[in-house]
């Protein structure tokens, strides 16, 4: 695996050559996207996005609302398939495998690339059933004991177990917003994904709950490749190792988070960081 180290720099496209060549993360590349475009009907939402996502690190997508960062995120686990009239072009590869290949099973793909959404969306089931749902449909547990173990360990990893261990059979919708979001993270972890996509996971939460989730993201980084969309630059700066800046459907700039925030190359990035672009 170390062989792949350093590839980040070589395959980084759209990055100005004056960018700091030393990436803080010398990690293998998990996901590569090349010239990804998205059309909603006649409207083009993304214009040729190319980016590499390193393994076991947090990559943040930032940019003003409507810039296409969420759209691109949803391409990675093919959630755009569920939107009528959406057309995706270009290639996205997970471990070298084209995820838009006709032979690829989207169900399997989504089991490997989990997702956490903007608004906490626990199912109208018990806390236990929420977490157990993924393993159940995918047949990951051979028996009840297996399932219990997966549920408990997932809740632990999401930092929720201690808070809910006495009320696993109560409805997940009864939890507080922050707890609900951690439940959703536990639900995603329970399937054992390799990549977790987070679409503005804290935008509906208060600052304290946000801090808890951010801490959690930092812990999860140990085991998972995480891509997070956020409209908060502070959040990107706090949790991510790499940052990509989107604007009007284009990927303007990407690089180590520190560089993007302290030394942006592109004028538009600079304007955004300085608060000049909404």
């Amino acid at each position: 695996m170390d062989m792949l180290a350093g590839k980040v720099k070589k395959t980084s496209l759209n990055v100005d050559s004056t960018m700091n060549p030393i990436d803080v993360l010398e990690r293998p590349i998990r996901l590569t996207a090349r010239d990804v475009t998205v059309h909603y009907g006649a409207k083009q939402a993304l214009h040729g996005i190319s980016i590499d996502i390193p393994d076991r690190a947090v990559t943040a997508f930032i940019g003003p609302s409507g810039c296409g960062k969420s759209t691109f995120l949803r391409c990675i686990n093919r959630m755009n398939d569920t939107i009528e009239g959406a057309k995706v072009g270009g290639t996205i590869k997970l471990d070298g495998e084209d995820i838009y290949a006709p032979a690829l099973d989207v169900v399997e793909l989504r089991a490997r690339i989990g997702m956490v959404f903007q608004k906490p969306n626990p199912f109208p089931k018990s806390i236990y059933d929420n977490v157990a749902y993924g393993p159940r449909i995918h047949g990951l547990a051979r028996n009840k004991a297996d399932l219990d173990e997966i549920v408990v360990s997932s809740l632990r990893k999401a930092g929720l177990f201690e808070e809910v261990k006495d009320r696993l059979q109560e409805p997940g919708t009864g939890l507080s917003g922050g707890q609900q979001q951690r439940l959703c993270i536990a639900r995603a972890i329970a399937v054992g994904p390799e990549v977790i996509l987070m679409d503005e996971p804290c935008s509906a939460l208060d600052p304290i709950a946000t801090a808890v989730i951010e801490e959690l993201i930092d812990e999860l980084r140990e085991n998972y490749t995480i891509v997070i969309v956020t409209h908060s630059m502070q959040q990107a700066a706090r949790v991510s190792q790499r940052t990509a800046f989107f604007h009007l459907g284009n990927l303007i700039e990407q690089g180590p988070t520190e560089d993007i925030f302290t030394n942006p190359v592109n004028k538009q990035t600079q304007d955004y960081i300085m608060g000049r672009i909404g």
Partner: peptide, 12 residues
């Protein structure tokens, strides 16, 4: 991960 993938594939 590969165990899981195998399990998932089996049910597909």
């Amino acid at each position: 991960s590969s165990d899981r993938t195998a399990l998932i594939r089996a049910g597909l």
